[in-house]
Simulated scan of single mutants.
Amino acid sequence: MEFTEEQINRYSRHILLPEVGGKGQKKIAKAKILLVGAGGLGSPAALYLAAAGVGTIGLIDSDVVDLTNLQRQIIHHTADVGRPKVLSGKEKIQALNPDVTVSMYEERLTAGNALKIFQDYDVIIDGVDNFTAKFLINDACFFADKPLVHGGILRFDGRVTTIIPKKSACYRCVFKQPPPPGLVASCQEAGVIGVLAGIIGTIQATEALKLVLGIGRPLTDRLLDFDAKKTQFREIKVKRNPSCALCGEHPTITDLFDDGDPYAGCAVRPSLT
């Protein structure tokens, strides 16, 4: 593919980088990245990926915009309240960068549709707000052999990690058991500082671009935690668990499960958007 003069000008600050250049920008233009969730984390990730010139951005979300979303879900505007998030997101992405193709999936991610949707993308970004969905995304990425950039936020705390199937620790390697019902509060119950979504979501977008470009050191086998009150990052090293039910030496999970998955678990620290 060849860029027009306008595109060369648009992406000139990328092209100036030795690690990117014209070849790297063409990789970005050919990339297909799926955002599971067009909310707090999906909003900043989508906007920065669009600005970067990612060729195809997929948005999967069954929800509509609510007034309470606007405190952190910056891709949506006041006039969008009541409209499907995928439609609102698509409009903002293409207004920012007409070069980007946006694929909309106005549906809930399930075991029945996950593999079919994931197969068309190079990188999957997890921006969902419940633990069952996070495990479903992890498992679907494993079976589809797709890199996953996980993110989660609650109150003043955020977390990011990148998972390469069969090469790095997966979500189930680290977080094995769900909390007792009612133990972990949601953002709706406990709140979240809105700007935290921007910090974590843009880190997720950075990880996705690094994977597309094949540069740098991804956040594999590492959990990057951010404490917004202290403005402090902490890195926790993790490793593949040979006893992991999904990617271990003797896996017991051989297919995807929907809600009620007997193996479903969650993070020790809440990871909600």
Rank of each mutant, 00 (worst) to 15 (best):
K85P: 03
R83N: 13
S62F: 11
I137A: 04
V102D: 10
K116P: 00
G112E: 15
D63Q: 02
I137F: 05
D122E: 07
K116C: 03
D66K: 09
A133M: 05
T132P: 05
L87A: 06
A52C: 04
Y48K: 07
P98Y: 15
T132M: 14
L67C: 04
L96Q: 11
I124P: 04
I125W: 00
S62C: 01
A52V: 00
I124Y: 03
D66V: 05
E91F: 01
Y48P: 06
I124C: 07
T68I: 01
L109E: 02
E107Q: 10
Q119P: 01
G58N: 01
T110P: 08
A51D: 13
T78F: 11
K85L: 06
M104Q: 13
R108Y: 09
A114P: 03
T68F: 02
K85Q: 05
A111F: 02
E106T: 09
I125P: 00
I74P: 14
N130D: 09
R72N: 10
G89A: 09
I75T: 10
D66W: 03
G53V: 00
G112K: 14
I93K: 05
Q119N: 09
L59M: 04
I57Y: 08
G112L: 10
R72Y: 12
N113A: 08
V123R: 03
Q94A: 12
S62Q: 06
Y48D: 08
Q119I: 03
L47H: 08
L67Y: 04
D80E: 14
S43A: 14
Y121C: 01
Q73F: 14
G42S: 08
V65M: 04
A51P: 12
R72D: 11
D80F: 13
G89K: 06
G82K: 11
E107G: 00
D63F: 02
D99T: 07
L96H: 08
Q94V: 15
D61Y: 05
K116Y: 00
G58S: 02
L136F: 06
R72H: 10
L87C: 07
G42Q: 03
Y121A: 01
L87D: 07
N113G: 06
D61W: 07
V81E: 11
D66E: 15
N113M: 12
H77W: 15
R72A: 13
N97V: 12
R72T: 12
E107S: 05
T56F: 04
P98E: 15
D66C: 12
Q71W: 07
N113T: 03
R108K: 09
E107L: 04
D80S: 15
